[in-house]
Structures are given as C-alpha cells and as structure tokens.
Write a protein that binds this DNA or RNA. Structure first.
Lengths: 156, 156
DNA sequence: TATTTTTCCCGAATATACTCCGGCGCATAT
DNA sequence: ATATGCGCCGGAGTATATTCGGGAAAAATA
C-alpha cells in the first residue's frame, strides 16, 4: 500500500531533484544523490509504484498559445448543492482558458485562475461563460500582475 | 528570437503530449505524432532552444511531505509601494507551505495557496507569518475543499 | 552471542534510446 | 524548367535505461 512506504533522506533528495527537473537522466540523479544508477533506478521505480511520484509535466510558454496575461475570478454562489457545485467545477476546468479552479470556504466560494489573450477575451469569458449562470451571485474579476509558484515541495 | 518561431500542428501535438507526460521517450512521442524519432527530436530541440518548452517537473504526492489539506489566504494590503509588495511576495513564496502566490488587482491584493499539516499548522502560519505584518489590512482565510488544475494548455 | 532475515547496495550484461549526419523529396521561388 | 530551402527519413555509433544475481550490513530472532 502506498501510505505504508517509508521515505528516507535519499528518497527526498531524489524527489527534490525530479520536482525541479523531471528530465534529469537516472544517471544524473544517481550521481547527485551519491547512488549507483541501478540503486537509484530501483528507488524511483518504488516511488512511482507507491504513488509518491505521480507524474511529470512539461511547462510550455503560454505565449505560444496566444496568452498575454492571466486573471482570477473570485466567485460567490447563492446556494451550495453539492451536485450543482461539482458540475460547475467540471465545466469550468474544461474551459481551455482555465488554469486551475478551487472550491473554498469563506466569503468567496470559487477561485478560478485564467489565461487570456486580451481584455476583450477576458470580458467575453466573464460574461458568456460565468456571469450568465443564475446561481452565481457575484464575480470579482482581477488581473494577475504577478504569479510565483513553488514546484518543489519541501518537508513541512 | 523566441517569439519568431512558428509552430505548426505537429509542434502543438508534441507540446500536448509532453505537457501531459514529460517522461515519454522521444521515440514514443514521435510515434504518437507520426514522425520519425530523428525528426521529432529536432523539433523538440528547437522548441527547447526557442524557449517554448521551458522545463518539466515531477509531481509528488503532498502526503509524502505530511500535507493533509490545502488552504488559501485572500489578503488586503493598506498601501502598495511596489518595493514593499515585491519584498512581501518574495518572502511568501519562500515559505515551504506556499504552493503559489498571486498579486492581483481588485478588492483583494494577494492570493496565497498553501499546503498545511493540520488546522494548528494553518493557524500558526496565519498568525506568525502573515497577520503579524503591519501593512496587511485583512486576511480572509479559506480551506480548499477541491482543487483542479489543467496541466495541458490548448490553443485559445 | 550466534544465526537468521531483511534491506539495500553494487556491477555487469542486455536491451533500448539518444544523437548526429548524409541524403532525399517536396514545395516554393526564380 | 531549374534552383533553393526546408523538413523528413534511416542508419551508425554512442550513451543510457533496465534487469538480474550476488554480497555486505543492519535488524530481528533465538
């Protein structure tokens, strides 16, 4: 079972390297954590099979897709039927402009992170894909001036 | 220059595969986009050199780091001196609990996405690392019930 | 303490993939 | 019609991934 796997210092070192750069060759990772390639390979294999290493993704310049800036919508819903909310989240994440969507507690219910071409695009997105919906009470639309992300986790 | 590179359908197909799974071998990608390995390799090389393919990162189960849930802080600042804000963002993103931080326009100024061990951890994080700061007017603290992310971009 | 068991490492061997290069075909321009 | 450039292919050599067996060290057992 996944949760029963015990991770030692070396495992964390491997995870750190691969979170930083998933394209490192097994040989390179092995060298950086002072292991032979075969030993390192076995660990990585175990981490994958144990569900610790869940995948890896290339990062592509959004400009290549015509994105010029990002925005966020802070959304309030008038009622919270679980089914309705789940359906909404599904529809939202299916939009190509949506980078992420979070369902949260508090004054706002949903935070959507968007990638858009220009202001007109943002406008039409807001009005045609969001505002229209009857169960949305309020949308606070924000431009993202700066966004920083930690792709490498560290022990808490 | 990077922005002058022209991407065709095949390039986008390659980008899509690698965003979905950065560990695909060049051979596999080539097969999926109906190209010989050498031709595919040349394209990937060009995409990297052109700054389109910016890197790739492994995704690790947060539970491995003792994370049990996520939270968000919606933060208001009382003044917006650029230098102060930038410094704050730097300090925030440097925290191991912070997954991402966004500086936005509108009623709130900053959205921080956090990974925490438990409620006590969230509490201490809020009070010791955020609330303390004099220039923070208000923090709206939210639990993240659900979070969905699109790791594969599609043309707008 | 002696013995068993487990865990984890290494090195070698094989299979597979990367990488570069020469040449060909097609589309476009002259 | 001919020339030019661009992108593709296939092959050869090299490097890497992956598997396997065996051995050392630690942990558990008696």
């Amino acid at each position: 079972m996944a949760s029963t796997i015990h991770l030692d210092r070396t495992d964390f070192a491997i995870l750190e390297k691969l979170q930083d750069n998933a394209l490192l060759s097994n040989k390179q990772v092995a060298a950086e954590v002072n292991l032979s390639p075969s030993a390192c390979h076995e660990r990585v294999k175990r981490l994958k099979e144990g569900g610790i290493l869940q995948g890896s993704h290339a990062v592509v310049d959004p400009k290549a897709y015509g994105v010029s800036f990002e925005a966020m919508f802070l959304i309030q819903l008038d009622r919270h039927e679980a089914l309705l909310v789940e359906e909404f989240l599904q529809e939202v994440i299916a939009l190509r402009e949506v980078k992420s969507v979070a369902l949260i507690s508090g004054a706002y219910d949903i935070v959507a992170h968007l990638r858009v071409r220009d202001i007109d695009h943002l406008k039409s997105l807001a009005f045609e894909k969001f505002t229209k919906r009857p169960y949305i009470t309020k949308i606070e639309s924000s431009i993202v001036y700066d966004f920083k992300e930690n792709r490498v986790q560290k022990p808490l």
